[in-house]
Structure formats: C-alpha cells, structure tokens
Design a protein around this nucleic acid. Sequence first.
DNA 1: TGTTAGCACTCTGCTTCATAGAGTGCTAAC
DNA 2: GTTAGCACTCTATGAAGCAGAGTGCTAACA
Lengths: 342, 342
Amino acid sequence: MDERKRQVLQAIIDDYISTAEPIGSRTIARKCGLGVSPATIRNEMSDLEALGFLEQPHASAGRIPSAKGYRFYVDCLMGPQQLSDRDALLINQWFDQKVRRLDEAFQETVKVLSRITRNVSLLVTPQTSSCQFKYLQFLPFDDTRVVVIVVTDTGVMDNRLMEIPAGTSVEELQRIAAVMNHRLSGLHLTEIQSSVLEKIKEEVLPRPELLEGALSLIREATGCANANDKVYLGGTTQLLNQPEFRDVEKVRTLLSMLEEDRLLYDILHTQDGNGVIVTIGAENKFSGIKDCSVIQASFRLDGQMVGTLAVLGPTRMEYARTMAVIEFMQAHLGNVLKKYQR
Amino acid sequence: MDERKRQVLQAIIDDYISTAEPIGSRTIARKCGLGVSPATIRNEMSDLEALGFLEQPHASAGRIPSAKGYRFYVDCLMGPQQLSDRDALLINQWFDQKVRRLDEAFQETVKVLSRITRNVSLLVTPQTSSCQFKYLQFLPFDDTRVVVIVVTDTGVMDNRLMEIPAGTSVEELQRIAAVMNHRLSGLHLTEIQSSVLEKIKEEVLPRPELLEGALSLIREATGCANANDKVYLGGTTQLLNQPEFRDVEKVRTLLSMLEEDRLLYDILHTQDGNGVIVTIGAENKFSGIKDCSVIQASFRLDGQMVGTLAVLGPTRMEYARTMAVIEFMQAHLGNVLKKYQR
DNA sequence: TGTTAGCACTCTGCTTCATAGAGTGCTAAC
DNA sequence: GTTAGCACTCTATGAAGCAGAGTGCTAACA
C-alpha cells in the first residue's frame, strides 16, 4: 500500500462521498493531481480492488468504495476535521434560542444534529434507571388532591396529582411519607421491588389503602425509570435526500426499524466507550442497517455517562465532518446538561 | 341524483378506496348487484362525471372519485360505522399496557391511532398556556441545591434543580417563595410578565439575587407553557404504504411539512368544534396537503377543550372507519386524561 | 520497470417502436 | 330505458437498437 495508492483511494472515496456515483479512472486522473494518465490509475484501481478496498457495481462501471475501503479511510486516510465556524455558531445559537429544559435539550440536539449532518440522528439517555430514591413528598393542591413528588439523586423524577382518600388528614399523609422515605431512601429505583413495598405496607398497617397512591407512584417512577430510557430520533426525512434511498421499499424498511425504540436503544447501547465510535456497514450488529454507518459518542455529566448520541446514514457518509460534529456536540451537550440539570 | 346513481357512486368510491385503481363499468356492473349491464353503468358514470363527482385520469381509463365525490360520499352516502370490537380491544389494551403518564398517553395515542387507521396521525394540546399559577415551592435536595417546583391549577408545571446562593438560609428561601406566591397566585401563566416580576424584585430587595433562579424558572414555566403546546406525530412510515406516495418526491414534500410543528399546529388548531370534522383535499387551507384529507376531533377534560387529535392521509381514505376510530379515541382519551391528570 | 496510448469489448440506460389490454362512447336494436 | 356490438383511444409493457462510459489488455516508450 504505497503512497500513491492511498492518494488514489482517498480521491475515490472523497469523490464518491460527494457524488454517490461510481467513479472512473479518467476522473481520478484529472482530480487527484498526481500527473499520471488514466491508464496508470486503472492499474492502481485494479490493485485496490484486489486488496478489497474497492468494488465494481458491474463489469464496465467505475469503482465504488467497499466497507473495508471506508474502514481504511476512517482509520488511516482522512485527516481530522475541525467543525466549521458556521456550524459551531449554528449549534450555539440553536441551543440558546430553543432550549429551555432538559428534554428539550435532547430533542433539539437530534434536530440540529440531523440538520447539520444531513442524516438521521438519535440520542438515548440510558442512565436514569440507575438513580437513587431520595425522598417522596406530598404537596397540598386542593381539598381533595395532593401533588406527589418523587425526588431522586438526579432531581425530581416524577410527579402527579393524587386523590386524597376520604377522611385522611394531612398529618397522616406526612407520616406515611416519612415511613416510606425512611425505608426507601438511598435505594436504587430498580431495587424498589414489590417485596420491599409490601413490608412497608405492613408497617403502616392501620391505613394501608392510603399507601396505594404513593406506592403506585413509586412503581410508576421505577417503571418510568425504564420508560425514561428515552430515545430521541430526528431528521428521518433526511433519508429521502440520499440517493441510496431513492427506492421507497428501502426507505420503508429502514424507517419502520427506526420506529422501534428498543432497536435503536440496542444499536447505541451496546457501546459506551469514551471517544467517537464509527461502525461501518456490516459491522453493525443489526442486519437492517448493514448498508448504513453509525457514528456515535457518549456524553457525560460530572464524569458519569448519561447518554449517547449518534448519526446514522448510508455507508457513503461524510465521516470526517460528521465525526467533528459529533465530537463538538458531545462536549456541548455536557455543558448544556450542567445548565439544565434536572 | 336518483337512487341508482347514488349506489353506483358509492360502489365506485368503496372500490377505489380499497384498490386505489381507476375503476371501469364492467367491474361496477359485476360488484354493485344492480342487475344492469356495463353499458347502463357507463351512462350513469358519464352523468356522474358531468355532475363533478367522478374524474377520469385519462381518456380511456376507468373513473376515480373527485374531491366533490368524496365530500358527497362522506356527507350523504356512507353509513355510520361502528368501531370493530378488535380495534376497540386493541386500543384499550394498548393504553392499559403502555401508558403511565400524561405525555405518554398522547404519545401512545398517535401510535395506536396511526396503527389502526394505517395513516399518519397527530395530536396537539393547545390549552396549557391558559393555566393558572398556584404556588411555587423549594424542596431540599442537598447542601448546595434545592428543587424548585411550580404548581399550577393543572398540577405540577415544571421543576428543576437550582443552586442555592452562598450564605442563604432555608428560611430566607421560604420567605421569598411566600412573597412570590402571594403576588402571583391566581395569575394565568401568560399574565406573568417581566413587569410583575420586577415589582416583586423590589419587594424582596435585600437579596434580589436570590430571586433570580426562581424568577427564571417562572419565566421558563411561562415559556414552557407555549412550548408545551406540543404536537405529537405518529405513523409517518404509514405514508410509504400508500400507493399515492410511491414517489419519493411526494413523500419528502409531505414529510418535511410534517416536521414543522407550527404547521401541524395550524392545520388542527383552526377548528375546535365538538364533533368529528372531515377536511377533504383542497378544502385544507395548506396547499401542501391538497391531495390529503384530515379527519379530526377535539377532546375535552371536565368540559374544557384540551386538545385535538387527527388522522391525515390521502383523499382516498377509509372515511367511515377512520371517523369511527377517531370518535372512539376522542371519548377514550377523555377517560384516560381523567386518570392521568397532572 | 513503470508509464502510457490505443483499441476492442462490455455493460447500462435511454429512446423508439410495436403490441396487448382495458375502457370508453356511440349507434342501433330491443 | 336498456343493452349488445364495435370502433377508437390511451397506457403499460417489452423488445430492439444505440450512445456513452469505463475497463482490461497489448504494445510501445522512457
């Protein structure tokens, strides 16, 4: 793999990424500025195909990069790319203008990410289920209802209105809250199982029915802990701009997949390293996206991993630029999180 | 418009709705069971076309219904349809299994709606900005932070973690909360403007900087009031199953439109009558959906309109069935709301 | 030995053309 | 008023032909 081969390969991939057309020796000879003839390039291309970096859609077409070609491109060929000032500015302004709350931050992240990368983007927040129960509190609302609030170590987890059972005093409610807080405080939400709740029920036996609301809220909160492992998906229409999805069948297959939250969750959840991870074509464990690449990175808050964001597109993707965007967004999101911490 | 014409028209529309193919006189003669020959049907069809109820894609093709034809079909021809037991069961189970909170109820509504109707469905909740501020409360969190909670007449509106400014006692915080609650209680969120907040600021002048967090939270909450006019969108992939969207261009046009929350909001917000409203083709005020029909209904909670749900699809739509589904969902959602009231 | 020009060959995609099929409208008969 | 028959029209489909792009091979050249 000499220098010229690398240059040729890079030129082919760069060109293919922007045109989506198989590319011939003439074009490369003209573009890559090596000062050699198409015939020479043909020889190089033939070698590169033999090495598995290129493919031919059919016998007399130009070459296109193979998955292996992209892999080599990402690992060895492409230079690191800086995010353009324009994009950085866009991101900053976007968040300043649109984000008011944490969930909005996530929502807007996928929006701006897909807009800049012109691909589908996703974001999962997988860490909520590991948070600890801190306390539960009843707040007055009106004569017949109270607001129940569950506070965890990440802030308020869940809240809702609850009917006050007839003939219950505020003091009684407070006592129940105290018992529950004493028994549950410090437990991870996932540890709060029915068995623990049954014990508490016995403890406040005189009026067990009063507990039900609070109990169900906690059950909900722990349930929500999983439900809150929310997947944000954005820019699905971007798919339709990609020539590889000119076929409605393909679009449908992929879009249906993307509607399955659990699937998306798995696509991303599998990896939680620190840097930007690129998964090309069949490297993805789901065959449904074997013609796609995923570029992902996890983001942290106070050192703890709290989620993953990713861009998904055809293997023909602007890897360098997309990685730069993801990297920027990873850092940016960390800051945003601090600001809008629950 | 005699009885036989009506029968022919109905047969044509029914058939076209299910096949999406222009339909000829032979087929109708066979299917609608009038015992007349294709030639007779041809005469009727010719009349119906002259009346504007039918169209011919080209000179020697069968007929398809015009927008006017659909309108007549919806208003006069089709019988009221009951929701099938299967669908009713599906909806009930769906909510039982998946819904834990209010926003989930909305989210799942569009999911199940689009699944049953096999079309795009949407839901907007336009009424949140009209709710009243009740009170604000600081809850202890840890040494340096408190949880701030804004309670409105619909329940907890917003909450978040806030840093406690150095050297501030809990009592001081409580006092500030008391002042704010006194001044703001009963106001609609939209009425809480900077001017009012400035006044309060003067009132607790000794430590105005303490207010900032709470103030910004309220600003956020009022801002969120608008942001909470949320649009839920579901089943966009259903589009791809419709033959009228076999063209990627059309899909893209419509999907891009559907990504604009504000547009969707306007499509639905315009009408807030009580029953089920059907808007066919060019009756829609947005030219982008002039080949689509919208079936919508508002839903209520305690008599007050709290949102609108809708199904959007090509003009060739199963009107009777979709209307039945929407009607059922309208009532069902009312019940669900009561249960999961904030 | 690496590079290049020339050339034959191959494969796709587009255009053109012919044909089959579906459906209509008209006329004349019932 | 209804129906059978028939000529006509328009589309969709498939075959055939052609241009264009690109390759691989060979032979010549530095």
